[in-house]
Structure formats: C-alpha cells, structure tokens
Nucleic acid binder design. Structure first.
Lengths: 182, 182
DNA sequence: AACTTTATTAAAAATTTATTTAACACAATT
DNA sequence: AATTGTGTTAAATAAATTTTTAATAAAGTT
C-alpha cells in the first residue's frame, strides 16, 4: 500500500485527508452543510485561519466561507480570535470534541424539548375543551382522553431530555460516565 | 373517516396537527426527510396503518410512503405488524420516545465512533511512518508528532460516546438520570 | 476625506435531494 | 395457470438547498 513516489509531506497531507473526510461525513449526517463540514474538519488541523486562507485551502468562494464559518460559530464549533496587526478576522476551531459536540446536542435538545412541550400543552388544552364540550359524543370524549393521556406520558421524555442537557452543561454526567474510562 | 367541518371532531384534528407539526419539524432538523417525518408524526396518533391509509392521510404517493416507512424502520421508529386476514402490510409507530429517539442516537453515535476511530487509526499509522522515515526533516517529524497526539487525545471522546451508547442500551443511564424526575 | 482592504448581503446558477409517474415483481386468490 | 391486488424499483420531474458571482457595506489606512 506504500507509494514510494510520495514524500513525508504528502503522506502527512494524505493522513489528514482521511480524518478530514470522515469528520466532514459525520457532520454532514448531522445536517451541517458540506462546505461547513469540510471547513470545520480542515480547521481541526490548523491553529487559526482567515477567510482567505479558508478559501484557498478549500477552493471555494469567500461568501461560502463567510456563511459556513458563521454557522459553525452558531453551533459553537468555531470561535473568532483577536489577532492584532492583521485586519483580517481570524477563526479557531474548537478541538475538544467533548465541548463542541455537546454544545451541539444541548442546543438541539433544548430547542426540541421547548418546542414540543409548547405544542403539547396547547394540544392538551384543546383536548380538555373537547372533553368538557357538551356537543361531544362519548366516543369523541374517549378519543380526546386517550390522546391527552398519550401526550401526558410523552412529557416524561422531554423532562428527561432537559435533565440530560443540564447534567451535560454542569459536567455532572462525567461523574457517571468518566471521560477517560479506557 | 369523514371530514368534520366544525365542532369537537375538528378541534381534535387541529390539536393533533399542532403536535404533528412540531414533531415533524424536529425530525426534519435531525436529517429525516419531510415525508418520513410527517409520516411518523401522523402514525404517532394511529394504532396501525397500511401504505394506502398513509397515502390518503398524507396525500402523497405510495412509493414515497414505501420508502419513508422503510427509513423509519431503519431507525427503529416504526415496526411491521402481522395482521392476519389482510393482504396489506400494516405498520405501527414506536410511541415510546425513550425507545425511539434513543435507538436513533445509539445508531448514529455508534456509527460515528466506529468510522472516525478507523480513520484515526489509519492516520496515526501514517504519522508514525513519517516519524520513522529518514527522509523526514525534524520539522516534519515534529508536525507529525503534534497531529498524532491530537488524534490520540480525541480518542477519549469516541470511547466516551461508546460508553454512553452502552449505558443507554443497557438502561444504566436511567439509574443516574431517572425517567420520572419531575 | 478619499482610498483600500475585508466582510457581508442579494440575486443567480448549479447542485443535490426528495417526490412522483410509470414499469416491474411478487403473492395470494380464484 | 391466470388474474388481481400489493409493494418495490427506476427513470423523470419537481423542489429545495447550497454555492457562486456581483454588488454593497463596513472598517482601517493614508
């Protein structure tokens, strides 16, 4: 499998590419756009980058880098750094996967719990009205009750999700599941 | 199933729609296609459905339902049920969010850990070769060492992810984070 | 204050992805 | 064995999203 024509520098680039490819593929799977995914994976091996460096490194347009980097900032996987002497903005990738990926999930789960709980509360109010409504047949009332109970039961999941987020944010989860088990 | 134009029946449908909408939106966010997301959310309020019932309920084509239902089966959110007497296949939605969503994450995380660990191992071997290579300058060797160490450090995250999956699969996580906290 | 450099926004193009129509295959029933 | 009903695959269409080119705004320098 070894190519004698390749020098050590090229081998390093190849090795990096392997990891960059899989990291980007994973992020792609999570709904991050290809450009942003590739950008993060590339930045993972750099200490800091400007938009122009990103553009030349990935061979893409500057606006694409600009929007990608902002999305990565939104999910806390990239941070802006203040570099004096240069007018260009510089950005750094969060290299600690514990921090970057957990920030991602906490944001997702918090949003999910909030939105779904709101919808559930509203729907439950409607079901109660139906149950109270004298126009409702006993069949309809029974149906409304069933749905109400089903939603009530599902709340436990969202509460649990909120607890999970909290235990990740506080770091308490690492008392239960240590970071350096193996 | 007739279409009520007013009254309690309509209110029930409206209430269901509210929840269906947010569940579908959430799943959409997780990379599930709109058709599959809407289908699951609809099935969440039904005890069982055939492909034709899905088609009429969602107003979409049968192949779309067929592929959607299979994707939902892949992520364990829908199961086939054996209904004797009918030639049509019937499907049931997993209504327990603990089971359905956790199956989803375990599958994702397991895949992520496996793929990335494989890429990391390969890349690390390459970096070792570069370090051993007599053609490598001391600068290149230093670079390779840095990258090697960075990857080595990242392994802890993937091990932790595997541990998390295991604690979810075994149910041990619920000793730490009970399901009915609130 | 004008000029230069950099970043962002807007509109257009291109790519990708999802969905449908049409054809096929598979079972079950007659 | 032929027919009917059901589900799946393939090719084509439609829709959505991503990316780019071009224009604009913002910031810094002379």
């Amino acid at each position: 499998m070894s190519e004698p024509t390749e020098g050590p520098e090229l081998k390093i680039e190849d090795a990096k590419e392997k990891v960059i490819g899989t990291i980007a593929e994973t992020m792609d799977l999570y709904g991050v756009t290809p450009a942003a995914a590739n950008l993060y994976a590339t930045m993972y091996f750099e200490d800091q980058m400007t938009l122009d460096e990103m553009r030349t490194e990935l061979g893409m347009s500057k606006p694409s880098m600009s929007t990608s980097v902002r999305r990565l900032q939104d999910i806390k996987m990239v941070k802006k750094t203040f570099t004096r002497g240069s007018r260009k903005h510089t950005y750094v990738a969060e290299k600690n996967f514990f921090r970057s990926f957990m920030a991602f999930y906490c944001q997702m789960w918090e949003r999910e719990a909030k939105m779904n709980m709101e919808a559930i509360e509203e729907a439950q109010e409607d079901f109660i009205e139906v149950i109270k409504d004298s126009n409702s047949t006993s069949e309809i009332v029974a149906k409304a009750k069933t749905y109400y109970d089903q939603l009530e039961e599902s709340k436990a999941y969202y509460h649990w999700l909120e607890d999970l987020v909290e235990s990740i944010r506080s770091g308490k989860i690492f008392e239960f599941l240590p970071k350096d088990q193996k």
